[in-house]
Computed example of a mutant assay.
Amino acid sequence: MRGMAGRACTAGLVIGVLVTGLTGCTGDAGGDGKTDKGRKTGKAVAKACADGTFTWSRVTQRDRLTGVSDPEQLGEGGGSLQNRMRRVYTPRPSVRADGPAPSPAEILFSLGKKTGEIDSDARTSAEAGGDTWSFTDVRFPAPGLDDGRVTPHAAGEFVQYAGVREVEADFRYTCQDGGTVTGHARSWTVDISGLTDCDERPDSALAREVARRSCA
């Protein structure tokens, strides 16, 4: 799998991403739509065209705090932090649409190309020659909170935190016959471990949120 979420460390900084499930559309082909022992009896599932094009708008990227620990006081020389982080947000890739649309993976593939998260000359993920990306997987799990613990080497009152960079945008999918479907997509790209010293001024919006939650 290409495009797996990476991890980076920073002091006072965090980053994050997103994805949701696609809603389905049905058309009434006669009958009452009831089922008989699991068999459909009067519903035809509307399908999206395969030759449409995406137009993206309101593309945003922002850092989301996913976990934060309680503060720990360390003496000269620092040392290992013992407090585990508690989860404050769970990023989930998602897609929603107001009618028949391509699969969530195709929609997120287009978003990934739009934002530069996916580097591919393929027009669709189906044409990508078997390459896959975690960015397009709506089942891709949220990163663990204690996978990359940080050890400060100085005295201070420290808070460890984790986060992701979320990417989201509105889309319009237009078929060659003029039919359109609109919706919204979200995914996350990379998770980061960070460390904040409560005695220092926060240097980012994310670090300010960490200080507000954990520092006195």
Rank of each mutant, 00 (worst) to 15 (best):
M4D: 11
R7D: 09
R7F: 14
C9Q: 13
G12V: 13
V14H: 12
V14L: 14
G16L: 13
G16I: 13
L18Y: 14
L22S: 09
G30Y: 11
T35V: 07
A46V: 14
D51S: 09
T66Q: 04
T66R: 02
G79C: 01
G79E: 02
R84N: 10
M85Q: 10
R92T: 14
A97Y: 00
A105K: 11
F109L: 03
L111P: 02
I118D: 01
D119W: 04
S120E: 00
A122D: 02
T124K: 06
A126W: 05
A126Q: 08
A128Q: 02
G129N: 09
R139G: 14
P141H: 11
P143V: 14
L145Q: 05
L145V: 04
D146Q: 03
D147H: 05
V150Q: 07
G156P: 03
E157S: 14
E157R: 15
Y161H: 15
Y161R: 04
A162F: 05
A162Y: 04
G163K: 07
G163T: 08
A169Y: 00
D170L: 00
F171K: 01
T174E: 10
G179C: 00
T182S: 11
H184M: 00
R186V: 05
T189I: 12
V190T: 13
D191S: 11
S193L: 00
L195G: 01
T196V: 09
C198F: 02
S204M: 02
E209L: 12
R213S: 14
C215L: 06
A216S: 14
